[in-house]
Design a protein around this nucleic acid. Sequence first.
DNA 1: ATATATACCTAGCTACACTAGGTATGGAAG
DNA 2: CTTCCATACCTAGTGTAGCTAGGTATATAT
Lengths: 108, 108
Amino acid sequence: MLKGHLDAIVLAALEAEPAHGYGIIATIKQGSGNTFDLPEGTVYPALHRLEEAGLLSSAWTTPQGGRRRRMYSLTRAGSAALASRRDAWGRFSQAVDSLLRGSRTWPA
Amino acid sequence: MLKGHLDAIVLAALEAEPAHGYGIIATIKQGSGNTFDLPEGTVYPALHRLEEAGLLSSAWTTPQGGRRRRMYSLTRAGSAALASRRDAWGRFSQAVDSLLRGSRTWPA
DNA sequence: ATATATACCTAGCTACACTAGGTATGGAAG
DNA sequence: CTTCCATACCTAGTGTAGCTAGGTATATAT
């Protein structure tokens, strides 16, 4: 469960270059060292949400002798959103880190 | 949104010493540098869930001239659960980190 | 000819954090 | 002394987001 951080992850996966659904899933799987093997039922609705929100744009393409693919790219708003999500993740993870570490001062 | 990480945070807040609901909220707020100011409607149900699951035990106490408090402590199962949650958090945050960082090799 | 991998889609479920209310008591302010 | 606030607890209901479990279709491999 990625609760709340999926959007950031998907946006980040599209930062380097446009990609299609299956490719995004593969990118996320590899980039996370197999930690995140997301089901399609998670990723496709997320892509639709993000496009609906104007953070992604999509276009159908058909590579030579291949099946049709819907390629997604970051919009300008998407880049901005990614930056802000990265920020939020930084604050969030740092907060959780310090809570799990136990914030009391260590004895000498 | 803490989705999925709340349990770990609450368990960690009780690791050092037993505490009551309000105290736990304050501990989490301070320990996170004010990042997490959790509403009671988030924390109390979580405490009940965790007790139900056997990870916490509770007892009513009434400090001298004070209001009654329900003090929660980690059970042995709670300690074990915390350890495993810490592990899961480590893997999770590392995976998100590398995805948000962009896992491609950097140009020289 | 059949199976497998690729590629996309979505209705509905579930879990869970949160909203928005409620009760009660101790101490401070007036 | 009574009114207000902070402390302290509780829960019914809501919103949502990720996931389950189904479906369609085409290219390649067997």
